[in-house]
Design a protein around this nucleic acid. Structure first.
Length: 780
DNA sequence: TCGTTCGAAATTTTT
DNA sequence: TTTCGAACGA
């Protein structure tokens, strides 16, 4: 999707072979380079396409589909084409449409893993104990449900948070594990051995609610295929070709799912094509298994492997910086990007600033300067590691009056008001949706509090019926207090009315009626806070989005799986987003702030996943740099406020890994050097660095060896340069010795416990263990 | 039942 | 620093 720009793009790859062909080649092959062409034309048998950043991956995928279609090898409905995001799916649809003419009536099996699975499940729902109308729960519902289970089991929610269990569930499901498959040492951990039982209970509850969570969509689909070979065979016959995008991001469940669907033929003949880039695998923490892509050749013996390495996006300097950094990782399939684009180009810049505020100021100034030079704000982006870093930029842009847009954040359908509205709709469509019922019985406030809800739930449980039915039953008795009884009676009556109207009314009208009649709008109107205006607009947006749906059911399916963030507005604005959400995008100018050890690479990743975590962070750095077409500007702050505490920081170890000849270093922070320390108890640098000096890791040695053999360059000495500027300490050798007593202006006296270049770990008498730059201390 | 107040926690998030 | 959630009191 790097290849966002529409097709006519000058990809002037030399077309070496096939010139003497008799037939004129179809138009869609024009402008493909030999490797891309090979990947498009090799349609029979398994194929692995390793596509580096900006090498035309999406173009290959779409052209390949176009090729299959125009050569009549398959009908659109016989091609299974999977992506991870709706955005990617949509883009592929569009582009295929352009290639083969919009005559092709969509591609019914082009979509995300989840939406395709949901589609299959709805068809065979009864085989996995669901009704075809099952609801899809999102994380929010999931947590609610888990909380109820925890309460039922008398588990202290403080000690064993529902979130944590949700995470474990997610991990199990990502690994394709049904309740019976979870290894006991894994499940026993939670709540003193109750984890396994909770998983069983949770699944039982889902069935009772006629619901599936995201993980289930895949997991139940796998179960369906395994337990019903005839159903699986049906899909084997149906799908003549399979294509998978971003294969490096697939998790075990998705892998199993694909394997099952590919089993229609002997592995060596399977028409499966996967496209991916092991260097861009950044979702390991969400269960993605890079191994899947590394293993492809053994899974599908005789698979053809094509590497796309010609980059059409970035300047040579940017590519060099990216390639050099990523070479520090071990366990890669190994690709090297190269480019035809202008020799060199602007150097990648690295700037050190005093604190995050100055970082925002500096970047803001630069943006205004580029803007004056005629660049669109749309062509610039700020990519951060974590969303808390965004705030400062937003504030700065507001003061400057620079337009900006934040990508990410809570997605549209995750917003409170939208979820409330959806809960009403879900309950109308599915009276058994207890989670929806609980969500809205008292929203807006109707005087139905905990105790009433408890009573309803107990009745529901004892009579074994959904909450809404239980409410009806209770209304016939004298148990409810008069006030509550009146409110509930009218609420139930309203739902009957809405359910009736749902049959005779357009969904978008229905939602407007519901919001009005339920008092939700009144609630928002009465709320004078700034947000309520926005909420009302979001609800309008919701009803607008519903206009294209004729049935409530169809809309609910769509919203659960497909609806993503607000459509990008057309205005000119700088984009602020996380590195994760930047994957697949490109900008002329990319700012990469916050390159400080602990922030990026994130301390937590390293603590939790060790070296693998560090390598994933490095891939994130690679993704970040390769987003830039013309200009990449990296920066680091010496001081950053984290959770309200000022922390001193050291430039990211990735800075040391940049190639000196492609990078220009400026050090704004040196002017304030003496103040570059933080206060407060630092927990981030408390432990000794688990990775020793970067200069001793095998990765570094290997990368360095690679570099030297490639072009005979010298050792990397960026760190030396930095040191020279900020400290006036000539060489690399540290002026301090282990165990030496030192003094720090802020932290007081301490003892050196670890030395890493010019970074010292010091055990302070009062302030605890901290990592500081040598320039901030003197001999004690 | 609802509003206030205090305390703990704090990435990244395609679905 | 901020935000969210649970406990407490009217």
């Amino acid at each position: 999707m790097a290849e966002n720009t529409p097709l006519p793009r000058p990809q002037a790859g030399p077309i070496t072979s096939q010139l003497g062909r008799q037939q004129r080649e179809p138009d869609y092959l024009n402008g493909l380079n030999p490797e891309q062409r090979d990947a498009v034309l090799s349609v029979d048998g398994p194929l692995l396409v390793l596509a580096g950043a900006g090498t035309g991956k999406t173009r290959v995928l779409t052209t390949r589909i176009a090729h299959i279609l125009t050569t009549k090898r398959a009908w659109p409905s016989e091609i299974l084409s999977v992506t991870f995001t709706n955005k990617a799916a949509r883009e592929m649809k569009d582009r295929i449409g352009h290639l083969v003419g919009s005559s092709v009536e969509g591609m019914p099996w082009l979509g995300t893993f989840h939406s395709i699975s949901a589609r299959i499940l709805r068809k065979h729902a009864e085989l996995v104990d669901l009704k075809s109308s099952f609801t899809i729960l999102d994380t929010d519902d999931q947590i609610r449900l888990i909380k109820q289970l925890l309460e039922a089991e008398n588990i202290d929610e403080k000690r064993w948070p529902a979130r944590q269990f949700a995470g474990m569930l997610d991990a199990w499901k990502n690994r394709g594990l049904l309740p019976k498959d979870v290894p006991s040492h894994d499940s026993d951990y939670f709540a003193n051995g109750k984890g396994g039982k909770l998983y069983y209970d949770y699944q039982a509850r889902l069935k009772a609610l006629n619901a599936a969570d995201f993980g289930d969509l895949l997991l139940e689909c796998i179960r369906l295929f395994r337990e019903n070979p005839d159903v699986l065979a049906e899909y084997h016959r149906k799908f003549k070709f399979m294509l998978v995008d971003e294969y490096q991001d697939s998790n075990t469940a998705q892998y199993l799912w694909l394997r099952l669907l590919a089993q229609g033929k002997p592995a060596s003949e399977a028409n499966i094509c996967v496209v991916g880039d092991d260097d861009q695998s950044i979702y390991g923490w969400r269960g993605a298994e890079v191994d899947n892509i590394l293993r492809f050749e053994s899974d599908f013996p005789g698979a053809k492997v094509i590497k796309l390495e010609r980059n059409y996006r970035s300047t040579a300097n940017i590519l060099k910086a990216a390639s050099t950094i990523i070479a520090f990782n071990e366990g890669r399939l190994g690709k090297t990007l190269f480019t035809d684009i202008a020799e060199g180009g602007e150097l990648v810049s690295f700037t050190q600033v005093y604190d995050s505020e100055e970082e925002a100021r500096t970047i803001g100034d630069e943006i205004e300067q580029y803007q004056r030079q005629g660049e669109d704000l749309n062509s610039m982006a700020i990519l951060v590691r974590a969303s808390f870093q965004m705030r400062e930029f937003e504030e700065r842009f507001i003061t400057l009056g620079v337009n900006y847009r934040v990508v990410g954040g809570p997605r549209f359908y995750e917003r409170k008001e939208i979820r409330d509205a959806l809960a009403y709709l879900r309950l109308v469509a599915q009276p058994a949706d207890d989670l929806a019922f609980e969500r809205i019985v008292n929203v807006p406030k109707r005087g139905i509090g905990d105790s009433t809800v408890k009573m309803l739930m107990e009745t529901a449980r004892s009579m074994n019926m959904p909450l809404l039915s239980a409410t009806r039953a209770l209304l016939e008795t004298e148990e409810l207090k008069p006030k509550q009884r009146t409110t509930l009676r009218s609420l139930v009556a309203q739902f009957d009315d809405w359910a009736w109207r749902a049959e005779n009314m357009q969904p978008y009208q229905l939602v407007e009626n519901i919001l009005e009649e339920s008092g939700y709008m009144d609630m928002l109107n009465a709320d004078k806070s700034v947000e309520s205006q926005g909420r009302k607009e979001n609800l309008k947006e919701l009803s607008r989005a519903m206009e294209e749906f004729d049935s409530l059911g169809g809309f609910l399916e769509h919203i659960a799986l497909v609806m993503d963030r607000d459509s990008a507005d057309a205005s000119d604005a700088v984009t602020i987003m996380t590195l994760h959400s930047a994957k697949g995008l490109e900008y002329n100018t990319v700012f990469l702030p916050g390159w400080e050890d602990g922030t990026f690479p994130s301390q937590r990743s390293m603590d939790e996943s060790g070296r693998a975590g560090l390598e994933e962070e490095r891939r994130l750095a690679y993704v970040g740099i390769t987003r830039g077409r013309k200009r990449v500007r990296i920066s680091a702050a010496q001081n950053r406020r984290i959770h309200g505490l000022w922390q001193s920081a050291i430039p990211s170890r990735f800075i040391d890994e940049l190639p000196p000849d492609a990078v220009e270093v400026t050090d704004k922070g040196s002017a304030y050097g003496g103040y570059g320390y933080g206060g407060g108890a630092s927990s981030r640098f408390n432990k000794a660095d688990p990775f020793e000096s970067v200069y001793e890791t095998p990765g570094w040695k290997r990368a360095r060896a690679n570099q030297e053999s490639r072009k005979g360059g010298g050792p990397l000495t960026i760190e030396g340069e930095l040191v020279a500027r900020s400290v006036d300490l000539g060489g690399q050798s540290s002026g301090y010795a282990l165990g030496e007593r030192v003094f720090h202006l802020k932290f007081g006296y301490g003892e050196v416990t670890h030395i890493e270049g010019n970074k010292l770990t010091i055990d302070f008498e009062k302030a605890g263990t901290k990592k500081v730059l040598e320039s901030f201390i003197r001999k004690g």
